[in-house]
Design a binder for these strands. Structure first.
Lengths: 197, 197, 197, 197
DNA sequence: AATGAATGAGACTTCATTCAT
DNA sequence: GATGAATGAAGTCTCATTCAT
């Protein structure tokens, strides 16, 4: 009885997320053209029409997934930035949190890896996803003011960092879990050396 | 007669590249699902059937483009690595050559950016593209032996470098040409600081 | 209390007609395939399920509208035929009443215009709609007996008349209201000349 | 050999007409919603995609059929109007030709009957179909100038005539062929009496 | 070798209908 | 009785691929 209640609850409340998760998995594994909406419906345990109650088109679904991930990223960063710590430590926390987040949700990472520069993602959607960077921007400008971080264009720094994170995570996924912390330390050293004054 | 020969020559010899270039452009701008073979044929000024004389399927064409780009990359690197120069200079040359190459062929870059982690690219194709890295590997191991470059896993260094290049070029494309050399210098400084001992 | 009663009254008693009127409008303006049941429900201010309490299928709804209009036509004709007047006058009254009725309810007219020969209307429904013609038949046979109307097959006369009415009304709708009475007189003259002995 | 050539000729040249004829038949018999494009393709002996080489949408196909019929009507009328005959005779010839045409092509007639006032037919298409009326207009104005035909708005006359033709043909189709000429004479008498001065 | 009309499998999407609330 | 989210069968349409020219 208890169990059947759980099921009902899950089905009615979280249908949208069910769909997003199922679609994300399939899109990562097979690619856009190889995952028909019917397959997503089956994987999400819904009727095909139900998906269209939440997303008007397949493209809208993909953009929806993009935003879903970007929104989740924000939460990670907010918790990672503890203002009482030293700047270098805060930077390491932030970088580590990001890496851990993507290691924990490999489909989110794989999805972003595949779609971040795909024409399927609308400019509008991309813009909406940029809010996340605000706390990092603050961190970096603080660092520059304190003379700890190189005096260069902020955007340049941001691009550099996000590029290193993506490539690093993709590579880390191929490594056994027990080596990862060591490799992360090496990476942090390289990245910090790169941006520090 | 002369004229008709020219036409024939043009059609038979260059048709494969015509197709690749037209397809690359469309795939970058519209995405896979939004560029039918008929559109590629029209853009390449050929019949649809002609494409199938060179590539057995659409997927094969996409993988063909991938290899076409990877092959061109090799040439860049070979010319960039002049063994008489100092190691740091050779590194700078290599990095600069790569950046310039992608700035010069933005569709090649956009294509790799979009497809490098797409399931459409077969594992087999990916393997074939890895040969390019050999000269860089040599450069980095040399550096490590000479105590100039951090003693860490080679693959780790490679991943780090390719990640920084991709993100950097993507960002550089949004900047006016006259600023680019300055920004490249900043980037080189960051990257070298990151990997140097 | 009063208020809530009103609401209830409105909802239960008139719901069927609400639905018929909303559906008629939409079907005329958009056509069958372009008016989903959901659109009808919205226009009728009901839930989609409510429609199915009154009509088992969409086809049944369309046939229901057909009969609704045919039933209303009867009322018009009954009042138009005052047996104390001369036969010509009675004919004019009947024809005029019909024209006025359709001018007053343009959606009824447009609906019949569109569906009178559509395969969606079942033969059964068509039969049920034919009762209306009885008073007209009587009028015409009377006229033939009195030597006022041409001696020809009754059905032939009926078809002729209904054809002229439909086309005339469709055309009259495009004319400003103030011209209509003059045009109706012209039409009556033509029609009467056509059928009179 | 000869025969097989004929077949080939038929298939390549007339594919568009094949489709129109098959579609017209099905649409008349089943209605729009009950005739899927797949059924039309099967009836026309083509692949479904072939239809879309000639008509971009189902709606365009229906509009195409409308124009196809309207175009055929013109031919009928041109041959029917022999300027050396008396005006009354010319009118009878025109009316008779029209009736015979629709009796000969019952699907053309049934199609027009069902779609002439359907929202599926675009205003644009309707306009294009109006050219046909020119010869008839000429005939009627001639008649008015000669004092043979009632002095009333031309459009009024046209609407009246087309209304009578449609209804008459629809009814005639239910009659055995041998009675038709007699009934046509009755009809001509009624119509002429209606419009003559 | 080059072509592109023809093809039909299969994609996306709609919508009549149901049923739990 | 009223509702509308959920459903999936079935529709329209696309497009990779073929093959006769």
């Amino acid at each position: 009885m208890e169990y059947s209640f759980q099921i009902t609850y899950f089905c009615t409340v979280d249908k949208r997320e069910q769909i997003i998760l199922a679609a994300m998995k399939l899109l990562c594994e097979k690619g856009v053209q190889a995952t028909p909406m019917s397959a997503i419906a089956k994987a999400a345990n819904t009727g095909m029409g139900t998906i269209y109650n939440y997303f008007p088109t397949k493209e809208a679904l993909i953009n929806g997934i993009y935003l879903h991930i970007k929104t989740a990223e924000i939460l990670v960063m907010d918790t990672a930035l503890d203002e009482t710590k030293s700047l270098k430590l805060r930077f390491f926390h932030f970088y580590t949190a990001f890496v851990h987040y993507y290691l924990k949700y490999p489909y989110s990472f794989a999805f972003m890896d595949q779609f971040h520069s795909s024409p399927v993602i609308l400019e509008e959607t991309r813009e909406a996803g940029k809010a996340n960077f605000l706390p990092v921007i603050e961190l970096l400008t603080d660092g520059q003011k304190q003379g700890l971080i190189k005096e260069m264009e902020l955007e340049s720094l941001l691009q550099f960092l996000s590029g290193t994170i993506n490539t690093f995570v993709r590579w880390l996924q191929t490594k056994p879990a027990k080596q990862r912390e060591v490799l992360l330390k090496q990476q942090l050293r390289m990245v910090w050396d790169a941006i520090k004054e």
